[in-house]
Design a protein around this nucleic acid. Structure first.
Lengths: 230, 230
DNA sequence: AGAAAATGTGAGCGATCGCTCGTAATTCTA
DNA sequence: TAGAATTACGAGCGATCGCTCACATTTTCT
């Protein structure tokens, strides 16, 4: 199907809700789109998804709803684009953590690094937890984006494990990764309700549990008495 | 009895939102309250929390909003009472599972029984997952009720472990139980998005992971005294 | 310069939601 | 059977939310 003209007005399916109504061309509008996403993330962190309104986002971004809807077709698109920016941040952070050097570490060490990485992303990216571990149970707003975000998170660790343990079948590796990501959500879901000390404790326990679990599949490997460093 | 406290319209705190506006006295009204809660649970399961409206609950229950608000002061109260009914169901189911005979089983077996019990409750109680594992990340509607529900869930297993392993300090036991409940939420949170086969696989893995973890604290079999890193 | 395109604004529309209230029907009491 | 209490009903109020639209302002193009 050929799109008529430049108007990206696509009422067809909800396929790509992140498609901008109008591509920002000048610098000021690009800046505005960025500040809208920034405001959306911060508001999400502050008031939660249920209380997040488009008018509030616009006000927080120092603009008007009219401007918001000039570049986003609807509310879901804002969250979808926000999830996109989170994906970039996740890839950047995990890519920094998983390099050639860390590839030689034990699986337990890799799990610890992964958990720390996720936590770093969460600390530096307001609203991250709402799109990574919430949504699903609600009426899915940015559900596609959420799945893609999850895949992006698993990918670096998956690649690393695949290279280090070619003898472990892919199916098992997938299950294992699934458990790692799901369990790491536990951590994120409890951030807001726990004091820092309890968070630290919970994080330690999650590392320990995942370490035991992963080692049962992949073995401690570079083992020479590696314990989860507490 | 004549009104001890007049109209229960108490603007005090949000302490007990489950207090009925008017206690149902005749049989037909008690039945109606029950059918309202039933409808609320089923709707929660079908449309999710975000799309759950009081009018829809009333319609599904075969009554009118007027009747609903005659016995519930507001929407939150309905969910709060629903959570209460879930607590009863949880206590009943877990109480049936954890008896004198099961007390002698290994910790790993206990964990398996616990997971199966939670799953049974979820299968038989529509809306359970939304109040047990969702909420927190949203604007907490029935947050108090949610916490109480969680405590109720942990209690039977906690008592069993405390009796079987008096030598394990309470603090460690608490942490361990925390991990068990949090991890079991993973299972519940994924029910709606997975096919039965994948659910079964995920459940097996959760059991395995929790088994490894719990055994590292309590020993794999009946008390053999072997505590790992500490 | 002037025209056109891009961007910015916010009052307010339509829809929905939680909830009220006037009133009618049913049940209890005597 | 009559009056009181309880229960049932549903139109609609007030508030809010996502989003539109007519118009103003700024930037780019020629």
């Amino acid at each position: 199907m050929s799109d008529p003209e430049q108007t990206a007005e696509a009422p067809s399916s909800t396929a790509n809700a992140s498609a901008a109504r109008r591509e920002p061309q000048q610098q000021r509008s690009q800046q505005r789109v960025a500040s809208i996403l920034d405001a959306a993330g911060k508001l999400l962190e502050e008031v939660g998804y249920g209380a997040l309104t488009t008018n509030a986002i616009a006000r927080r971004a120092g603009t008007s709803i009219g401007s918001l809807y000039q570049f986003f077709p609807n509310k879901a698109a804002v969250l979808s684009r926000l999830a996109d920016s989170f994906r970039v941040e996740v890839t950047r952070t995990l890519g920094k953590i998983f390099n050639l050097e860390t590839a030689r570490r034990s699986t337990i060490a890799l799990v610890n690094l992964f958990i720390d990485g996720i936590e770093e992303v969460q600390r530096r990216t307001p609203g991250f937890s709402y799109l990574f571990s919430a949504t699903k149970l609600d009426d899915a707003p940015a559900d596609d984006a959420s799945h893609q975000l999850e895949r992006e998170i698993m990918e670096p660790l998956d690649r690393l494990l695949a290279e280090a343990y070619p003898e472990v079948p892919q199916k098992q590796r997938r299950i294992c990764l699934r458990m790692i990501t799901e369990t790491s959500k536990v951590l994120i879901a409890n951030t807001r309700t726990l004091d820092p000390a309890s968070q630290e404790l919970l994080r330690t326990e999650v590392k320990r549990m995942l370490g035991l679990y992963v080692a049962s599949y992949f073995g401690p490997k570079t083992a020479s008495g590696d314990h989860p460093s507490n």
